[in-house]
Write a protein that binds this DNA or RNA. Structure first.
Lengths: 196, 196
DNA sequence: CGCAGAATTCAACGGCCAATGAGTTCGGCT
DNA sequence: AGCCGAACTCATTGGCCGTTGAATTCTGCG
């Protein structure tokens, strides 16, 4: 275990981003409370004190790590532009594609895992869901009880995530995108537009 | 804070059950890792060492606390006896009724919350789901891909729990049983018996 | 070149936790 | 009545964690 000398490194170290990436992965794997500053530091190959130097507190690190590499509201808006026909399918497909793109450093999973047993994270998740997804969807569909419909969709979407990532149900993990879209798309479409 | 004297209490104390009840509530509220032996002991109005006296380790306490006050396999079996017609509705209704009956000391919520960031609990949850619910359901419905269908149902059921208990979506929490059964019943029925 | 400040490490503090072991009081069996 | 074991508490230990402050080395600007 070669200890490194103290002091600044030469060149562009990109350490800050390395820490953020490591933090996102740890939070996504274990949630807020289980993730230790020390484990993030180790994963980023850095001293724990440096994490504090950059982000102040663990809460600060979490807040910084939860930023998406894209704007989720835009993604939702683009889906809504195409009208309400086939919206259910588009929602599922977008979700799955986005997940594949994010890989192991997935803020949504991190938020979801952290929300359990850490109320501030639960509130962040609720606010993200409400502001970026539920509100736009609820105003876009022109039917009765729009908010309840949006939350029904959210419950199925969250269920997909938890079933695959937390409970790790095998056939759901193994299923390909087409199968999942065919299964879940009509469910969401029904929640959005059918009679309840 | 009146310190109690050491030594055995007179009469039937029922302390063991008090500890188990307190543990179930704490685990259901905060999950395994966030729950401390000390908080359980405090909630049961008892010294922390007594919890160890009864259950050995925290894992032991958790295992004991996760026992249901009824046999879930029986409940599932009774639902399956009535055939596959309306099975989706019966599943949702049973789930909701069972939840209302269990109140704040709910092993399913405890298991779900603990599964995040504590792999042994995740495995317990997976084994419970598989053995007590998914396997019986998958063998009872006589269709193609029974296992995938069962897991699709599980994903929606888990989604209901997480959306209401963890994310706390307001309209889902406020909705009455009839509304939820009308919304979710057909979804589950479709997962179980319709073409995919 | 000189210097302010950023990047980085080290060592340490106080806090909380699970677990342990020894000691105290009581119930129940003989 | 006597005693063994169960119920119960107290004090302590060792470990991990978040956070802090000082020390060291490098960069970039004037």
């Amino acid at each position: 275990m070669a200890k490194r000398a103290a002091g600044r490194r030469p060149g562009d170290s990109g350490t800050r981003e390395a820490i953020l990436g490591a933090a996102r992965e740890r939070f996504a794997e274990q949630g807020f409370r289980e993730t230790t500053m020390r484990s993030v530091a180790t994963a980023a190959d850095v001293d724990p004190a440096l994490v504090h130097h950059y982000f102040g507190t663990k809460e600060g690190l979490f807040a910084s790590a939860m930023a998406f590499p894209f704007n989720p509201a835009d993604v939702v808006a683009r889906m809504l532009e195409q009208g309400v026909d086939g919206l259910g399918e588009r929602l599922v497909r977008t979700l799955l594609v986005t997940f594949a793109r994010l890989g192991p450093a997935n803020p949504m999973i991190a938020l979801l895992r952290s929300a359990v047993g850490h109320p501030p994270a639960a509130q962040m998740l609720r606010e993200f869901l409400t502001g970026a997804v539920l509100d736009p969807v609820a105003t876009a569909i022109e039917v009765d009880r729009p908010r309840l419909r949006a939350e029904l969709c959210a419950s199925q979407v969250v269920g997909i995530l938890v079933a695959r990532e937390v409970v790790e149900l095998p056939e759901l993990r193994a299923a390909d995108t087409a199968t999942l879209v065919a299964a879940y798309g009509p469910t969401l479409q029904r929640y959005l537009t059918a009679d309840l």
